[in-house]
Nucleic acid binder design. Structure first.
Lengths: 355, 355
DNA sequence: AACGCCGTAGCAACCGGTTCCCATCACGGA
DNA sequence: TCCGTGATGGGAACCGGTTGCTACGGCGTT
């Protein structure tokens, strides 16, 4: 095999042209493939290309209007399993449609988010996908509306994926999944087993994801004519550590409950461990349910009853909807369904008095 | 607030110049910040910039040599927890150093990998980070060596992260972690409990990650003067489903063992569920250990004894080493240490005869 | 044999920026 | 009053590509 020794400086189209004894335009046309070029010339050019190991500069092509388009993906932390699945969906669909995929994690910092969106505008990204719930404040809507306008005026498109929609009029594509409905069905299932004091181990108090699931929790109670004890709503964040800590605290405080519905499977995992540590059995002493249906849920012991969310599909849809959109069309707003996955962690309450 | 109505076509530096009544060079200088410009002119320019919501095209800047550099990250599937943590480390360090971060998942397809690396060469990425073990064949070394040369000649740099090193001479940075050492210590710990028939639930048979861990398994046996029964080495892939299936099969086949060492925590999770389903207790009947120390490991029941791998640090180091490298310097080859995390899933073998 | 057409390749303009180099202007000192 | 000088801003070349338009040469046709 011929191995080029470190040429160090990348060669330009003019270098190739010189070596092939043709003009730069001819090289461009040979590489472009459509314009008619004689076999002899094509051969000489291809030869030179191979000799120099030449690849056209994608940035230069982009500025001339013929580049590989790019698409950006902004999330808080790719480490969370549900985010990772969305990222996977986004990435797969992006490459399927011939786009490159930029990633940025904001660590929850709004300034990072703004900076990154600005960079994406500069990059002329075809679409910017903002992922994950957040606090739905007027400030959020204002700021995000501005980002949407700003991107739109640059020919790009903002996509909100699992993130609260904006006021109508914002040039934005929204893909959501049904937090409230899933939680409603799940909690209804728990209540149907006979539980009456169900602890809700929530995520961040103002976070739309947690809030939606909390609404479902409340609605399921109301549908049965029940009003849940407000002291059964606990908040933290979405990590397994939060679930663990919250559960320990709840047990220590002597809170009375026979079932726990966690805001996410991660929280449920931590809570489960805390229950085990306290010597309680699941679902014998306490029933437990999660949300997200991450792959691990079935390996908890007992296997976790939870709500399945089509995260990967969500990601795929986000990019497809954004990229296949016809510029003049109305703004899309999709809502994906979820469904409960019944496993072994929810059973009837113990016959003795609840702890 | 003033909201620009959909300008549709992004404005250029000349538009700004025209509006401010100056030349394009002046706008460039105002935005650049260093060149002396009078306060009045600067004001007019900034005004025009704001009015038009102008952002300089990053691609055009890049081609002129003053762009935000980019860095690429290629992995098989971001869905795996350990990959996700590496990705997180890479992304954080990249943005810390002011780089953009492109991602691509290959789904294990070599052609995708090649295509993507070629695209990254076209993008003039500062570095391309290839992540995760693979089959270490001559073909692999050949192909990867070519990629390294090709990238090097384009001024870019290939980084192998947790992937087998190449023959000396390839312009490549290698960051590995100690698969063999971690497995050695882990298996030594298991053997010290008195186990003599330890099942190794491996990943893909030819995969360097699995192979390294397998070597540690064997070495730990040899160090005690033991020769493990070859039929105790099982192969599949790295998913929880594989672990589940393999374990079921082993039990059905009546394989005799008192402990299981899984190639990854994911595999261990599936295996654990299969053990539970078979009515076996862990570690009472069978001990179980994993590898990777993913966050979930401590929420398995019993909490999983495993080997901690500093995945995020690995990712961070990969980008730092690649980007802070002085062009002429020798090729780096880093080997990160691992350590065993003892939890509750490994205990002494049952006193009765092994199953 | 002359004409015209078609296939092929080159020139130059352009994409959207940056920056070198030079012209201009105002100002202070001699 | 004249000149040197430093502060500013413009013109044009350049980064590395693409592409519209044009020119040239060889071929078939009448």
């Amino acid at each position: 095999m011929t191995r080029k020794s470190g040429d160090a400086s990348r060669s330009t189209i003019r270098d190739v042209a010189a070596r092939a004894g043709v003009s730069a335009s001819t090289v461009s046309r040979v590489l472009g493939g459509v314009y008619p070029v004689s076999a002899a010339t094509r051969g000489r050019v291809m030869r030179a290309v191979r000799d120099l190991d030449y690849v056209a500069d994608a940035r230069a092509k982009a500025i001339a209007g013929v580049g590989t388009p790019t698409l950006a993906f902004v999330l808080e932390d790719i480490t969370g399993p549900s985010f990772a699945h969305m990222a996977h969906g986004v990435e797969r669909e992006a490459t399927r449609l011939g786009h490159l995929c930029l990633v940025c994690s904001t660590e929850g910092d709004v300034r990072h988010e703004l900076e990154f969106v600005e960079m994406m505008r500069a990059q002329r990204a075809a679409a910017v996908i903002l992922v994950g719930g957040t606090a739905d404040t007027p400030e959020y809507r204002e700021r995000t509306h501005r980002m949407a306008d700003s991107l739109a005026s640059a020919g790009s498109r903002l996509v909100l994926c699992g993130r609260p929609p904006l006021d109508p009029g914002a040039p934005v594509t929204v893909i959501e999944y049904d937090n409230e409905g899933g939680a409603y069905t799940l909690v209804a299932h728990v209540l149907a087993q006979g539980h009456r004091r169900v602890l809700f181990l929530g995520g961040r108090a103002d976070h739309t994801t947690a809030l939606g699931r909390e609404r479902g929790y409340l609605a399921a109670h109301r549908a049965r004519g029940l009003t849940p004890d407000p002291s059964l709503l606990l908040h933290g964040d979405f990590t397994r550590d939060a679930g663990h800590r919250l559960m320990q605290q709840a047990l220590k405080d002597g809170l009375e409950f026979t079932a726990v519905v966690a805001a996410t499977d991660m929280v449920a995992a931590g809570a489960l461990t805390a229950l085990h540590e306290a010597g309680l059995t699941v679902p014998g002493d306490v029933s437990l349910a999660g949300y997200d249906d991450i792959p691990f849920a079935r390996d908890l012991h007992p296997a976790l009853t939870t709500v399945h969310v089509p995260y990967e599909e969500l990601g795929r849809l986000a990019v497809r909807t954004a990229l296949e959109r016809t510029p003049g069309a109305a703004d899309e707003h999709l809502l994906l369904g979820t469904h409960v996955v019944v496993r072994d962690s929810v059973g009837p309450p113990p016959s003795r008095s609840p702890r």
